[in-house]
Design a protein around this nucleic acid. Structure first.
Lengths: 218, 218
DNA sequence: GCGTCTATTGACCAGGATTCAATAGCCAAC
DNA sequence: GTTGGCTATTGAATCCTGGTCAATAGACGC
């Protein structure tokens, strides 16, 4: 996570390098491709917002860390919150991608594998995962939507793999189970008291219980 | 939810009412008892923060809605966030109080009753409950702590009522179950697709499943 | 009525989000 | 290799909102 952009586009020619010692080390304007810069800012935002809360991270800090002017941030993201939500969306998508289990596996294995990769993601990204899930920002619409969609996508994957029809109660149960997974993942990250394998086993088995009980609940 | 304080302390004497038409309707300073004022501001804060996110509600708006100067808010709450957390804490405590089931009931009935009152609370307070749970504010420490303590208290209640010892995995499972309840409650509020009684039955039965499965998970 | 206590005010300040006209890399055409 | 144009980038100015503080004005006891 290098917080300073390597002025690679400059190295080609290294022209207009006045070598004036006006300021100790003032890197010349680094002009990147739009996509590169956007990706850089996104990644930086993600890493900063993962460690500290939304308004503990100022635009100025963000800009300084990126080695870029404040104005440029606004060129890429119309508002601070947009940067935040974009970063969140990015992380959420990454989570969805990684936890998509190979379709050739048997249903039970798919479930287990999905849970395993989910926990891996949580463990690997630590604070970012917490930020993603606790996502809050005080019930902000946009944020809530991102989380909502993410959960919804996961729920749909599960429902699709189920041999029974997705009645409202089954659907609710699956949503609940996702809440269960999030809660235990968070708890697990915080305390690391239970063995990872046991947790996976518990979660997998529980999915069966949950769906089963939902199906027979009158 | 009247957003203007009735100047009740003034009605006693109604003195120094100059009746000058200097401004259409400028209510005289209403001097309340500290506790009253504090309670009023807390309630107002809760209602506003329940509807819109933390920084969509400005101090100015809060003050205007309370019919009070900005400075007074800061007399009662050292910071905007303090007001927010105080309101949140208040709501959380209320939730805990209401969901405490009568101790004379049998364990199963206690569980059922607790869940019922929990859902009632969620239903009755609607947006406030959502704000409480989604509470985030970007993983702000203080906020997270309030939610953490609330969940922890509920978990402890359950663990105390359990006939088995609270091993780490059982503890984790109970935490997970609480996450399950929150997720389904939120979903239920949003869609109201499943019958309340069925949901209670599902949640109650699941608590048993969860604890049982946790206890036997190797 | 008068003095005291303190709840309340409103003008002020500071810091951080946002805007925008001006600047400067890079590329292509000559 | 110079010139012109496109646009990524800047930084100074603005605006908004959270937070401060000395001054004001209800209530109450005397």
């Amino acid at each position: 996570m290098d917080r300073r952009v390597a002025p690679r586009t400059v190295t080609k020619k290294a022209r207009t390098q006045p070598a004036q010692s006006e300021s100790p080390d003032k890197p010349p304007r680094a002009r990147l491709l739009v996509d590169e810069r956007r990706a850089q800012l996104l990644a930086l935002g993600l890493s900063l917002f993962a460690e500290r809360s939304y308004d503990e991270v100022s635009i100025d800090e963000l800009a300084r860390a990126a080695g870029v002017s404040k104005g440029l941030l606004y060129h890429y993201f119309p508002t601070k919150r947009d940067l935040y939500t974009a970063a969140l969306r990015h992380a959420a998508q990454q989570l969805l991608d990684e936890t998509q289990p190979p379709p050739e596996l048997l249903p039970e294995d798919r479930a287990r594998r999905g849970i395993e990769t989910y926990l891996s993601f949580a463990e690997r990204h630590g604070p970012a995962y917490v930020a993603l899930m606790r996502g809050g920002l005080g019930a902000d619409r946009e944020i809530a939507n991102i989380l909502e969609e993410t959960r919804s996508t996961i729920a749909q994957r599960i429902l699709d793999a189920l041999p029974i029809s997705a009645t409202p109660i089954v659907r609710a149960a699956v949503r609940g189970w996702i809440g269960f997974v999030e809660a235990t993942a968070l708890d697990w990250l915080a305390h690391k008291q239970v063995d990872r394998g046991r947790l996976v086993t518990l979660l997998t088995g529980l999915l069966v219980d949950v769906v089963g009980r939902a199906a027979i609940t009158i």
